[in-house]
Amino acid sequence: MEIRQYLDATYLKTAQQANLSEEKNNEVVKNCIQEAIDHNFKLIMIRPDKVALAKEMIQKAKSKVTIGTVIDFPEGDGTLEDKLAEAIQAINDGADDLDFVVDYKAFKNEAFDKVKEEVLEGTKLGLKHNKIVKWIIEVAALNDHQIVQLSALIKNVVIANCNEKDYEKVFVKSSTGFYKTPEGVPNGATVATIKLMLENSFPLPVKAAGGVRTYEEAVEMIQLGVKRIGTSAAKTIVNGEISKNDY
C-alpha cells in the first residue's frame, strides 16, 4: 500500500522538551521539514512558530507538501479568543491544516456549551480561509463513553452549521501525543479507540495520532478507515522499520 499521502510527519517538541538548545532544536525542525519534502509526505506538522520557516523551505523546493500546526497545544484549555488568535497567526504564516486541541477538560466537567462554541468558531474560521481543521480530543484522558460523546458532539456541531461539501475538511483526531498516562498505558491511537471515533464521528474523517510506529500499524489504521496518520516516524514507517519514538 502507498501510504505516504496518509502521513502527517510530525515534530512538536520544544527545545526544552527535546533537551536541546533553541539552535539545535531548530535544526531538527529543518531536517524534519526537508525529510517531508524529500519523501513526499502528505504534510509536515510543526509548532506554530515554525510555520513560516516550513513555508519558505517548501516554496523554495517547489514541493506539494502541506503545512499543519497545532492550536492551544497540548492542554486545550485556553480561551476561545486565544485559540482563534493563534489560528489566525498560523493562517497568516502559511498553515494549511489547523489541529486544535479541544477543551477536553471542560467537556469532562460537562461544560458542553463552551466546547460546542469553540468547535463552531474554530471550524468556521478554518473553513472561511479554506483550511483543513482537526479537533484533537485526547483519547487517553477520556473513557470510552466520553470518546463516543465528544466525537459525536463535534460531528453534530459541524453537521448543524456547515455545508455537506465541507465535512471532509473537518477531522476528529485522537491525540496530542503529550498526555501523561500511567506507565505502559497507551496515550495515543489504539484500534479500539479509533473504532469508537470512526463510528461516532462519521461522516467526518478521523486522524489517528500517537502510537502508530510501524508500516503494519499504519496500514491497519487505514484499513479501519482513517484518512490521516500523525507520526514522528513517517520515514521509518515508509521504510518498513519499527520506530522507538513515542508519537
Rank of each mutant, 00 (worst) to 15 (best):
G126M: 06
T14R: 14
T214R: 13
N92C: 01
K131T: 10
Q89E: 14
N40Q: 10
Q5M: 15
I237M: 07
G76P: 02
W135E: 05
K169F: 07
D93N: 06
K42T: 15
N19H: 12
C32L: 12
E199L: 07
A192I: 06
Q34T: 11
I154E: 06
G184S: 08
V119C: 05
Q5K: 15
K227R: 05
E241M: 09
K134A: 10
G211A: 03
T69K: 01
Q146T: 08
A189I: 04
E35C: 12
V101Y: 06
V219T: 11
G76F: 13
A9K: 05
D49V: 06
A234T: 08
H129K: 01
A90E: 01
D77N: 11
T214C: 03
I44M: 09
K227C: 04
N26S: 15
P182F: 01
G230V: 03
H39D: 05
D38I: 04
Y215I: 05
I154W: 04
V185I: 14
F100Q: 01
Q89N: 07
T69N: 03
G94T: 11
Y167K: 09
I154N: 03
A18D: 08
L7G: 05
I3D: 06
P203D: 02
P48V: 12
T193C: 04
F100C: 10
P74A: 11
L196P: 00
K24R: 15
D82T: 13
Q5D: 15
I91M: 05
P186E: 04
V219W: 12
V65N: 03
F178K: 10
F202M: 14
Y179D: 03
I237G: 07
G240L: 09
L12R: 03
V119A: 05
G230H: 01
G68Q: 06
I58M: 01
C162P: 03
M221S: 07
K165E: 15
K131W: 12
L20Q: 14
E121W: 13
M197N: 00
V102E: 03
R213I: 00
R213L: 06
V28Q: 00
E217K: 12
V115S: 00
G78Q: 09
K24T: 13
K227F: 14
V65R: 04
S232K: 10
E2K: 14
G78D: 02
Q146Y: 13
P203E: 07
E22L: 02
I71E: 03
S175V: 01
Q17F: 10
I194V: 15
K134W: 08
T236V: 15
S243H: 02
D103N: 13
G94P: 11
Y104V: 06
G210M: 00
T79V: 02
E81R: 15
V226D: 05
P203G: 07
L150C: 11
Q34F: 13
C162D: 04
T181M: 09
V115F: 00
K13S: 07
I229N: 08
F112T: 09
A234R: 09
A85W: 08
V28A: 01
V139Q: 03
S21C: 01
V172M: 06
D49F: 06
L153Y: 06
L84W: 00
